[in-house]
Amino acid sequence: MLAVPLDGDVARAVNWRARLTHRLARHLRTSPVTLAPATPLVSFTFDDVPVCAATEGARMLVDYGGRGTFYISGSLIGTQARHWRVASEEHILALHEAGHEIGSHTYSHVFLPNLDSKGIVAESQRNGSCLRAIVPGLTLESFAFPYGFGSLPAKRTLAAIYRTSRGIVPGLNVGRADLQLLQANPLMDGRVDAAGIARMMDEALAKNGWLVFYGHDVVENPSPYGCSPALLEAALRAASDRGIPCVSVAEGLRRSLRRPAA
């Protein structure tokens, strides 16, 4: 297992082999597609799902007519992490009932480059069973790599389980893409401001692209991995002012997927 806290800076702890396999995973597509949404789109995603994301963050999305994707690790439900308390079963059910998407983040929040295919399948199955015990009949379409690190074997294994896997490589999803490493941009006060968000929204508008954001907590004085309500508000307002629909990852894929890449 990776010897870093759940919400720590994993980049400082990984060895060169993990860095290399992640770099290969970034550049070699295993699930190539052409993404061509008819209109620009934006998706807001939250990893680990702190209580404040499941409550304040989810409420803000709904207030703007949007829905988000919340990537959950079953073993963390209701626990206390370093910077936040993780959402409870009741919070998860409320998210689903409000129309938000529940996604998978492995059961144990495990570092995937350390797992073989059998281990990844086992983690996915266990997490699915856990989440379906909370939301009966839940369909899990979307996955996010814990710590943002993937590998080519992991991507190939995940492709048989989920429609998409989201990483933390920044960019706009449009044209040639890899469904098992969707690009996503940090929604974190220390890494982006309202002006930067506006520029990304303008690019999505100009290119008819699908913009994905990721974060964790939504609270005043957030952790280094989260955002303040003011920053989320700025992002939601920027999308609304430009007429960009705010959709879950599963819905974003449905609106973006046109044909296999050549």
Rank of each mutant, 00 (worst) to 15 (best):
D189H: 06
R156K: 14
I161G: 04
T34H: 15
I92M: 04
P224Y: 00
Q125R: 14
G175I: 07
I102C: 12
E141V: 08
M1D: 13
A3Q: 14
L152E: 07
A144R: 02
E233S: 11
S165C: 12
H22G: 00
V4T: 14
D47L: 06
G148Y: 01
T45Q: 02
G66H: 06
R176A: 15
V10K: 06
Q183R: 15
T30N: 05
T79W: 08
T69H: 01
H105A: 03
Y147P: 05
G57I: 02
I77D: 11
P40C: 08
G252N: 00
A262V: 15
D7G: 01
V4G: 08
R12P: 11
N114P: 02
C227D: 09
P245R: 00
G119H: 00
A11D: 14
P113K: 00
V212M: 10
V249W: 11
E141I: 04
A177H: 06
A13P: 04
A81H: 11
P153S: 00
I168R: 00
S88V: 03
T139K: 14
A159W: 05
L28F: 15
L35D: 06
R17C: 09
A53S: 14
E89W: 08
R163A: 14
E220Q: 13
L231P: 03
N173I: 09
E89S: 11
L232S: 06
T157G: 07
G209C: 08
L28W: 12
T34P: 10
